[in-house]
Simulated scan of single mutants.
Amino acid sequence: MVNWRGSFCVPTRIHYGLGSLEVLAQIGIKNALIVSDPFLVKSGMIKNVTEQLDKANISYTIFSDVVPDPTVAVVVSGVAAAQKILPETIIAFGGGSAIDTAKGILYFYACINEEKNEESKPRLIVIPTTSGTGSEVTDFAVITDEKAKAKIPLRDKKLMPNHAILDANLVRSLPPTVTADTGIDVLTHAIEAYVSTLASDFTDALAEKAIRIVFDYLPKSYQNGNDDEARVRMHDASTLAGMAFTHTSLGINHSMAHALGGRFHIPHGRANGILLPYVIDYNSKEEKAAVRYAEISRLLGLNYMSDIYAAKELRNMVIKLKENLEMPSCFKETGIPEADFLASIEALAATAMRDSCTQTNPRVPTQEDLEKLFKKAYYGN
């Protein structure tokens, strides 16, 4: 199931470790558009970035209209802000929504100005404030089409960040629920990358390390946000998983989560976490996929002879981890009205089938398969 031919490139320069944000003043920025969200501005966290820019006398403008599940309208507004200052650098500061918004702005700003090559488009620097998306090293972004009530995955080399700054000082204050949601997102990225039809020895190494770190350090981050080692390791795991899935793409776990997020606005990581055990069960019915899940199970020390049984034990480990993180086990527990969910299943499945992530799932699904999976994940059976 591992790809024996392909290419592997990690163009993003990664700066990591506590205090690594200081490198921002040394990168040679001239004029920046900072893309962030209102909370990070009002709380003063944005000063972590602006103080570094002020130190180096760098000109900047803050665009803080970011919303959860960033919309086409917000991206258009951000492009207009960029057009006013013609930034040489765009800085994404925040979680997945801020990063996706910044990527959307960069993409359309470059297109409008016909800046099609790496030399002329603004540089992108990503400073994540959650340990989950991996977007700091991917050429992916997800934008919400409010009219269609669907998330639109974008993928283009223009979206690959030039620099990623992984300063775990910025995630100390994350609430436990956000730590859990984003941490499970890391695990889903890594597992889906490992079982993807585009997996390789290179992506396997990254995914395996990320999976190990999540099981070892996510519960510690959840229990004590001031555990520096746990915070640093989870920040690293997020990037490792991102490096893996930007080469492999993902699978139906993400296709389904994208569809749910676009319609019901469930936090992305939470949606992925709810779906993960059901997707493992579904994919394990394909023999090669079961072998890959079994390899992960054995990597974590569960030495079962049967691949099918080992795959089931991986599912059970995921369920146990989620219980320790006090996460919902099904969508009914998130408060989505039953009638609304059931009425949407056909549309959700159709949207997930069209999602690009579905193409690299280890088992080829039908729309009926996805409808059944959505129903199982709602009731928890």
Results as ranks from 00 to 15, higher is better:
D236S: 12
I152A: 00
S131R: 12
V214K: 04
L218K: 02
V126Y: 00
V232R: 11
T144A: 07
S238T: 09
S200G: 12
S135Y: 06
T197R: 13
V178P: 04
R212T: 14
S200L: 10
E146V: 10
E192D: 15
T144W: 03
T182E: 02
S131P: 13
T179A: 15
M234S: 13
A210P: 11
P153I: 07
A148H: 00
R233Y: 12
T177E: 15
L218N: 07
V186L: 11
I184K: 02
K157D: 14
A190Y: 01
N169V: 05
T179M: 12
D227G: 08
P219M: 00
A141S: 09
I213V: 04
K157N: 13
I191N: 02
R233K: 15
N162E: 12
M160H: 05
R212K: 15
K151R: 02
S135E: 08
D167C: 03
K147W: 07
A141V: 05
V142R: 06
Y194Q: 09
D227F: 03
L240S: 11
Q223M: 13
S196Q: 05
L240A: 12
I165C: 02
A237D: 08
I213P: 05
N162C: 08
T179F: 08
M243K: 09
L240M: 15
I211F: 11
T182N: 04
R231F: 09
R123V: 10
P161A: 06
A230F: 06
K151W: 00
T182A: 06
I125Y: 06
